[in-house]
């Protein structure tokens, strides 16, 4: 049974890798946030797969739904930020945001 679990973990690792690659290399703010969404898909896949393999799918389902609610809240906040940044800079390029030096 746990062979199956590793299959899902394998695929979600691919998703998370793709997301992190994009976060590290891309410059468009909206693209960056799409990357975050891809990472969160990987995480929710692991949650449901774990529940399905360990016979606690009901619990895993409620966790996944809660996670989706969190995601919606985050997306709303982040997109509001992006629109505000666009209003100020007239650009979605991460390089136009270099007033702070990290």
């Amino acid at each position: 049974m746990s062979n199956l679990w590793f299959l899902y973990v394998f695929f979600s690792a691919l998703l998370i890798f793709t997301g992190i690659y994009c976060l590290l290399t891309m410059r468009n703010l909206i693209k960056l946030f799409i990357a975050v969404e891809v990472i969160s898909k990987g995480v929710s896949l692991v949650i449901i797969a774990t529940g399905a393999v360990k016979n606690s799918i009901l619990l895993a389902q409620s966790l996944a739904i809660t996670y989706i609610v969190v995601e919606v809240s985050l997306v709303a906040t982040a997109l509001a930020l992006i629109i505000n940044i666009y209003k100020k800079n007239k650009s979605l390029d991460i390089r136009s945001l270099s007033k702070l030096k990290g």
């Binding site: 449901i48 529940g51 399905a52 739904i65 989706i68 995601e71 709303a76």
Partner: peptide, 26 residues
């Protein structure tokens, strides 16, 4: 995988609502 509620949520909220929000922002 036997998680119909999560599936419905994923399709309606993530594929629906979040895509609309993204499209709006774009």
């Amino acid at each position: 995988l036997g998680a119909p509620y999560a599936g419905v949520f994923e399709i309606s909220v993530v594929a629906g609502l979040i895509t609309v929000l993204f499209a709006l922002t774009v």
